[in-house]
Design a protein around this nucleic acid. Structure first.
Lengths: 222, 222
DNA sequence: GTCTATACCTAGATAGAC
DNA sequence: GTCTATCTAGGTATAGAC
């Protein structure tokens, strides 16, 4: 039975990376609308078909670009920590830091509007359950709700937060807020997404408690 | 000088309405992805070019569909009030009602996922300042922030809300929340957008005040 | 060195806006 | 009908496991 799969050759692996990099650069520099398969192919110096050989469809390629950005974001936000798992443990243990890191990522992302455009377009394409975007956002949403939800749970307990929102729902609210503000920012580049988001979270999480007459400011989340 | 603009003939006006209705129906019944210019043309029994004669481009037509939905939503939400201006005055005077009405619209919209898909797609296309979607969302955003912002201002004053968010920013937060939840709902039809949104708003607006020891429940916004 | 999965191509089908 | 975009059909050349 020598018909076993051989896997990509070294050359192929390098090409894949090269294509991904080219695609990310084009999206970042020229924006979503200006990004076409042919442009990417030409940037790499191969045919459209060759690109599709590696990624299947254009949308699959674009989703891989998003995954690449996630990796880059993570790396930039938590450069000190060695691996994904340690990062998650860290985030769950210190909710206030996880929020700060998310804000840092938001600020970082506003340096590359093209990639935010890509994210926005794909998030909407994800409404088609047969799309690669659907699989990506379904998975990404689960992970995000787990991480942010854990942080939210900590805050709810610690601050005795008076809310009917479950931690999972709280995480949904956070994500909705950020995604919605990103769309507004793409239309109105003047607004400061991270600033508005921070103030909104503060309003939700740093509630003055009716039971406490005075409050230690070091308790504040942000 | 008989070259003055004559405006559309009665027949043309009727056609325009017919096209709009057909487009809205197809989007509503078949979803955004399944909506093509040809399908709309065929439904009306005319050519693609004839449709474009009335609307210029496909995107212009789709924006008109969104405007139509806004009109329908408004009519359904405030059927008792005669005109748009009275409605706005009413909304600004009674912020708690304006929130309830928005929630009612959200619930109503979840009956037609296709139109929510259209809204989501167009809101992302609006990142291109040359698109018809850009003009629509820019304008819509302004109106919405004026109305919701006025309601927010009332709440901030009445509840002595301790926030750094301006009424306008508060309105942005509301819109972001709703838009973001809509995207999540398109991916996960199981979630109850309106319910989560209501709870989040409650958390922001019905803060127990540290200065008031007891609180009259009739003061609650929701 | 043989063999076959992998890399990449040319041509053209298809579909949608206009 | 024309243009632009993605994607399929079906091929040749080559890398690299054995």
């Amino acid at each position: 039975m020598d018909r076993a799969k051989r896997g990509p050759y070294a050359k192929g692996k390098a090409r894949r990376k090269e294509i991904l990099k080219a695609a990310l650069n084009i999206v970042a520099k020229e924006g979503f609308d200006q990004t076409t398969l042919s442009k990417i192919s030409k940037a790499v110096g191969i045919s459209d078909v060759a690109v599709l050989h590696y990624f299947g469809t254009m949308d699959d390629l674009l989703v891989e670009v998003l995954k690449q950005r996630d990796t880059d974001d993570m790396a930039a936000a938590t450069s000190s920590l060695p691996d994904m798992v340690s990062q998650m443990i860290q985030l769950i243990a210190h909710p206030e830091q996880s929020i700060k890191q998310v804000m840092q990522i938001v600020r970082r992302n506003s340096q590359t509007p093209g990639l935010v455009e890509l994210y926005a377009h794909m998030s909407v394409r994800a409404s088609d359950p047969t799309s690669p975007a659907y699989r990506y956002f379904k998975q990404r949403g689960k992970v995000e709700r787990f991480v942010v939800g854990s942080a939210a749970k900590k805050v709810i307990d610690k601050e005795h937060l008076d809310t009917e929102l479950s931690p999972e729902e709280m995480a949904r609210v956070m994500q909705a807020l950020l995604d919605g503000l990103q769309i507004q920012w793409l239309i109105d580049r003047d607004i400061d997404m991270a600033d508005i988001a921070e103030k909104a979270i503060k309003l939700m999480w740093n509630q003055p408690q009716s039971t406490n007459e005075s409050k230690d400011t070091s308790d504040e989340i942000l």
